[in-house]
């Protein structure tokens, strides 16, 4: 399995742990990833809210780079990059006017040949839970986990389309294969406020508290995410979101690649767990306990 990897800007900074854990999990599973040469920002929310041509052209430029490097599939971990690359690609494939516009701007003949895939899609649909299961060495037994998909992996369904838009399950199944217990909860695809994090922090904190308190009511010990903005808003802003609200305990918010990596026996430092604002010590204790039991059995 070979993919061109599009890390995106947040994986170079605020979400470096997502980058590290994605690379570690791919390596452990034998999924070969190579960075798109000289990739540039996908434009993210600011481009599509400011200049439609730019939000079409920046993804097209990157996908053309991947195509030139000989790849037919581009893998992203960031949900925002995924949505932007995929939305632009969809328009380029479907609408000749948009295709011509993109080609005029990037001055390259890109016509939508590259497929854009998300790490969840690759792990679940290409690699498959059965194959992952064979490689699990330290299952996270009994850990109750809420899978939080957010917006960008779920909508619009015509564009993203690798799971159900209102009730996705692929991440829950990956949680289960890691030995943990996926908990059903109603806010799987609710919004965290995403890029309003900086300009409208109070909105993000209100939504963050709503999500955290619902996860707590569902009885979870941690939330697992596959988006760098969801992680930032729920982890980095957790203390502020809970301020002035009814008290709930600290809930670690980890990337699916970090959770899966732990179950695959990858050392925590290789998964960037030290980058979390809310410590994941409780998850590590759980792993130590199962590893201990396994040791005693042996």
């Amino acid at each position: 399995m070979k993919y061109a990897f599009f890390p995106g800007c947040s994986l170079e900074s605020t979400a470096w742990d997502y980058d590290k854990s994605t690379r570690a999990v791919c390596k452990a599973l034998g999924i070969e990833i190579t960075d798109v040469p000289d990739w540039v920002c996908c434009g993210s929310s600011p481009a599509h809210a400011s200049n439609a041509s730019l939000s079409l052209a920046l993804p097209a430029l990157n996908l053309h780079k991947a195509q030139t490097a000989g790849y037919s599939e581009v893998l992203t971990a960031c949900a925002s990059c995924y949505a932007r690359l995929r939305t632009a690609n969809h328009a380029i494939r479907k609408d000749p006017t948009e295709r011509e516009r993109a080609q005029r701007i990037i001055e390259k003949p890109y016509a939508g040949a590259v497929n854009v895939r998300h790490i969840l899609d690759i792990l679940f649909n290409d690699y498959g839970v059965a194959e992952i299961e064979k490689r699990i060495t330290t299952p996270l037994k009994g850990l109750r986990v809420a899978s939080y998909y957010g917006c960008l992996l779920s909508r619009p369904k015509e564009v993203v389309a690798f799971d159900d838009a209102e009730h996705p399950v692929c991440m829950d199944k990956l949680v289960k294969v890691a030995g943990a217990e996926p908990v059903d909860w109603p806010f799987k695809t609710e919004c965290c406020g995403a890029s309003l994090s900086i300009s409208k922090t109070s909105v993000v904190n209100r939504l963050g508290y709503k999500l955290l308190s619902m996860a707590h009511r569902a009885g979870v010990e941690c939330i697992v995410v596959a988006c760098s903005l969801c992680q930032l808003n729920l982890d980095f802003r957790q203390a502020d979101a809970k301020k002035d609200q009814a008290d709930i305990p600290e809930i670690p918010v980890v990337y699916i690649t970090q959770l899966l990596g732990l179950a695959l026996g990858i050392p925590p430092k290789d998964l960037g767990l030290d980058a979390l604002m809310v410590s994941a010590a409780s998850i590590l204790d759980r792993r130590a306990a199962t590893a201990g039991q396994a040791g005693r059995r042996a």
Partner: peptide, 16 residues
């Protein structure tokens, strides 16, 4: 690709 990006920005603005 910074030079290329700046040209893309200029052309995208013309397109808009």
């Amino acid at each position: 690709s910074t030079k290329e990006v700046r040209l893309v920005f200029n052309r995208a603005e013309e397109e808009e």
